[in-house]
């Protein structure tokens, strides 16, 4: 039984991949993400073989041989920051963290959103109204200012921050979208058939509704990665997060030290991380757009 199911899944994925490949924008996103993946994977290799941890450590490294911040040199390909740390090492080190943060919080959001969306659609009535009102209110919350206020009172560290982002997102607008999708699945005849055949509510939701909502969830996961990383970068930039190193932190360091006022001269302090944030977020967004054409057949060319 599971063999057949596995085969079907593989075939379905292969078909979707064929559709996805037609979207040039989506493929561009995949390529960029893969490049970032390789870049991030280089970090442990570099620090263990080529780079001296004392000099190149992203948080506590220091190069006593040059004046800081130093422009790009052969030893520091992207220069160093105001307190003598290597920019390229910071960039590489942070890549993995950004992946972790983005995917973790997006995963939490999507899991919560999918469960609430399907449950609200399946049971309707009070459950539905309740969660939809909650979502309405969550959509009113301006997250970033809220997190600034929260962050000024509690020092937010990496994992709690990812959780908070994920949970806040999960109760928000995504439930409305996923509920609409789940509703369109719920009214299909095979759901009635499953009910008549004696399937429990849990079984119907798990085996019939959720699989049909998942593609859309996956699509929104991509968009959520983008927003999570942007939030992290913004909050790090304003210095309300207690994270030792991230792309946003790199710009924050330069800002605090006052080097952002002479913007053009100290370009290596902000350009690499700024480009990385934008490119990384754009890549996930592009993959989302490509998936949109898979999930939403009406957007396809033919």
């Amino acid at each position: 039984m599971w063999k057949i199911r596995w085969k079907l899944t593989v075939r379905g994925l292969a078909q979707n991949w064929a559709v996805f490949r037609e979207s040039r924008v989506g493929m561009l996103g995949v390529v960029i993400i893969l490049l970032f993946g390789v870049f991030g994977a280089l970090w442990p290799i570099m620090i263990n073989t080529v780079w001296d941890p004392l000099v190149y450590h992203p948080v506590v490294g220091f190069d006593p041989m040059v004046l800081h911040p130093s422009p790009p040199t052969r030893a520091h390909l992207l220069g160093t920051d105001p307190i003598g740390r290597d920019i390229l090492a910071q960039l590489m080190f942070s890549t993995g963290r950004e992946f972790l943060l983005g995917v973790l919080s997006a995963l939490i959001t999507v899991v919560i959103g999918t469960v609430i969306g399907t449950v609200a659609a399946y049971y309707g009535g009070f459950t539905d109204t309740f969660f939809m009102r909650v979502a309405d209110i969550m959509m009113l919350f301006p997250f970033i200012p809220l997190l600034v206020v929260v962050g000024s009172m509690v020092r937010l560290t990496f994992f709690p921050f990812a959780m908070i982002l994920g949970v806040l997102g999960g109760f928000g607008g995504i439930t409305i979208i996923l509920k609409a999708q789940a509703l369109s699945v719920k009214v299909r005849p095979y759901i009635d058939a499953a009910r008549v055949a004696g399937g429990s509510s849990f079984h119907i939701i798990r085996a019939h509704i959720i699989p049909n909502v998942l593609p859309l969830s996956f699509l929104y996961m991509m968009f959520n990665v983008t927003s999570a990383i942007l939030s992290e970068a913004t909050l790090s930039f304003f210095g309300v997060l207690n994270i030792d190193m991230s792309w946003g932190m790199m710009i924050h360091t330069a800002d605090v030290a006052g080097y952002l006022f002479d913007f053009g001269k100290y370009w290596w302090l902000w350009l690499p991380s700024g480009v990385a944030i934008t490119l990384f977020c754009a890549a996930f967004y592009m993959v989302g757009r490509g998936l949109d054409e898979v999930v939403n057949p009406r957007l396809r060319k033919r």
């Binding site: 040039r24 924008v25 561009l28 983008t226 942007l230 970068a233 913004t234 930039f237 304003f238 946003g248 710009i251 952002l260 913007f263 053009g264 902000w270 700024g274 944030i277 934008t278 977020c281 754009a282 996930f284 967004y285 592009m286 757009r289």
Partner: peptide, 28 residues
Amino acid sequence: YAATVVGITFWTAFYPLLSLVLIWVFAY
């Protein structure tokens, strides 16, 4: 394609930095 890629880049731009860039170019 061009508008989509440019649009996404701005949409996902790190906006504190974007504002700094604009200030730097147009004002500074």
